[in-house]
Design a protein around this nucleic acid. Sequence first.
DNA 1: TGGGCAAGGATCGTATGCAATCCAGTAGCT
DNA 2: AGCTACTGGATTGCATACGATCCTTGCCCA
Lengths: 236, 236
Amino acid sequence: MTLAAEFPADRLPDDRAQAIRDRLRDAIIERRLTPGAKLSEAEVGTLFDVSRTIARSALQMLTFEGLVRTERNRGAFVANPSPEEARQVFASRRLIEPGIATTACETIDAFRIDEFRAQLDREALHIAARGPDARRAEIKASGDFHLLLAIVAGNQILLRFMEELVARSSLVIALYGRSGASACGHSEHREIVDALEARDVTKTTVLIVKHIDHIEEDLELEARPTQTLREIFSNS
Amino acid sequence: MTLAAEFPADRLPDDRAQAIRDRLRDAIIERRLTPGAKLSEAEVGTLFDVSRTIARSALQMLTFEGLVRTERNRGAFVANPSPEEARQVFASRRLIEPGIATTACETIDAFRIDEFRAQLDREALHIAARGPDARRAEIKASGDFHLLLAIVAGNQILLRFMEELVARSSLVIALYGRSGASACGHSEHREIVDALEARDVTKTTVLIVKHIDHIEEDLELEARPTQTLREIFSNS
DNA sequence: TGGGCAAGGATCGTATGCAATCCAGTAGCT
DNA sequence: AGCTACTGGATTGCATACGATCCTTGCCCA
């Protein structure tokens, strides 16, 4: 992953817990772990060959990011965002991403554009491919596009906010999305890169907002999902 | 604190660690704990009468919020934000707060306005009072004003982001502030409430941005602070 | 006298053990 | 038959113990 190299990789402490967190987060983003799935400390620990202490630490991080919900004396579960939470996620993105795009427009250079092109190619590759793995990679790559925007903008704080928002978006789409994947967005991504290359701030921000609107329009946020998701985590 | 009652108080797990985190965070915001101060797990644990496990958990949360920096096998320290980080904090606030204010303008009602007025009174009270405790309370209240704005806007995610940004701002001001406290802001807060009451979105957002500008202008971000802050944490 | 090296102390990283809590299934009572 | 109380199992909450790492300090030698 060339993208991973771009990340700050700042916090050396808890490097083991953090590695587990990253793997769990990827699994959630790629929807290998679906909302409501139970994440037992012991199970996570044995799976990654660490003690419950480390597993617990990783789960705590994910709880902080809103990807996991822990209930006292009950355990940790992949978050089950309510329609209201879903709206807040997208409201936050509509607020933050145009600002990120504005900064990105101002600081973009040829090298960064190349990175965007490479990212678009990766997305196209996964879209073209068949099978569930390709689907998951496509979802992940689609989110990475937005993170790349934040990386280019160069604000570490906003990048972290975006990491959280993108991950939670994936969760929301998994729960409320009408069409299967977020395939709708690829052509829009390309338009955004074009506007970025032209350094057209207005066009870029407009396209970004439209893009987010489109994603949200694909959701079915009226009806609440069945609260009886207990059956889902019978996979453990 | 009537304000505390407004917070979601969502995460029941780790309630003990969370209580310690809150107290440490308040201490950092109020600048009882200055940048660079060492936060030993054992010391925090004995201070709050819990084991290192809980203390560690609280410190991990603060690390996540960017208020604490942990170095592997060395310990946790109150964060020492660089000028670049400081700029990013304020860039993020300039991006997010106008959006929050816009939403707040749309949803504000008489009851909420009363809360704002009460908050302004609290600020004025602390400004009028003498002594270091009053100064700390003033700093805290000044930050709470911005959090109240986020509470009124009703977006839990943005509220959490703002909690982090306000806390980090206090850290930045402690490091780079020219004038002692942020007393400059009180009259501006009042103007913002007036604009809010008039539901004047444009005026509110303009005032907010100006207010943030003023706070940042009071900083001295050119010269790096002395890296030899080791002397400071001799208080332990 | 100055630099390298080794011993010591302090702190963190991690695993594990025990108590507390919750849930499920069952037995007993009405 | 339906409802309540109880018991067993599983899981988390928390504390503690041990090993690993880093910094400091004092010693030795050039």
